[in-house]
């Protein structure tokens, strides 16, 4: 049992080795730490932003998505969407919004775990944080598609506006509206978190791979 744990957690660094190559072992810890902080901070910044322009809205309408809530002219956009039979935005991604903060905290802890685990299993722990930005976009697209393609056929403007897939990024349009969607700072922080996690693994591998290999060699030598 303790063997299994030991192989999962990976080899510990001997103190004399640590004193000799302090930088080598500190690097993955620090980079992972930075990745975690950046990911956590991203909760407080918008992930995605859409500006909607139409003649009768000279100041435009805007929609800003954080990982856990929507702000901006949600009510007005919902009001307009009812004309084309789109469901209220509040009904989209309800689970994701409720779970997102916990998910990010979980990722935070998992990456912290990756820093402590010195075996190749650490990769598994960091995988969610690395794939999170991609998952966000995929989920956003999924909901846009679901909402856009499932318009109420009895809506007042159903004859004029056919089901469509709203644009996740860049310029799009629906009816008299032009839409401009961009990622927000929060999203870029999440991307930075993912990249830093990958970079952290470079250092992780550099630091612990030799130890793991030595351990393997010792095991093979003394089975």
């Amino acid at each position: 049992m303790s063997n299994l744990i030991r192989s999962l957690v990976g080899p510990r660094v001997p103190l004399e080795e640590l004193d000799a190559h302090r930088g080598r072992y500190l690097a993955p810890t620090l980079v992972f730490m930075l990745a975690r902080v950046v990911l956590l901070v991203s909760i407080f910044f918008p992930y995605w932003h859409m500006e909607l322009d139409a003649p009768q809205y000279p100041n435009g309408l805007s929609l800003t998505a954080y990982v856990n809530h929507l702000t901006g002219d949600v009510k007005e956009i919902d009001g307009l969407n009812h004309y084309i039979g789109m469901r209220p935005l509040g009904e989209a991604a309800a689970f994701e919004r409720a779970a997102s903060v916990w998910m990010i905290i979980a990722m935070f802890l998992l990456v912290e775990g990756a820093a402590v685990i010195h075996s190749r299993w650490a990769v598994l722990l960091a995988l969610p944080a690395v794939t999170f930005p991609l998952g966000f976009v995929a989920d956003l697209h999924y909901w846009m598609r679901t909402f856009g393609l499932n318009l109420n056929p009895d809506a007042p403007l159903s004859a004029a506006v056919k089901p469509f897939i709203p644009t996740v990024l860049g310029e799009g349009g629906i009816g008299q509206f032009k839409t401009f969607a961009t990622f927000g700072l929060g999203y870029w922080l999440a991307v930075a978190g993912a990249v830093l996690t990958i970079v952290g693994f470079g250092f992780h591998r550099h630091a612990y791979k030799p130890l793991v290999d030595r351990l393997d060699r010792e095991r093979r030598a003394h089975p």
């Binding site: 910044f45 805007s62 700072l185």
Partner: peptide
């Protein structure tokens, strides 16, 4: 940082 998002929207306008 909480205010940054709002400032961004205002800047756009």
């Amino acid at each position: 940082s909480c205010f940054a998002g709002e400032a961004n929207a205002q800047e756009n306008r």
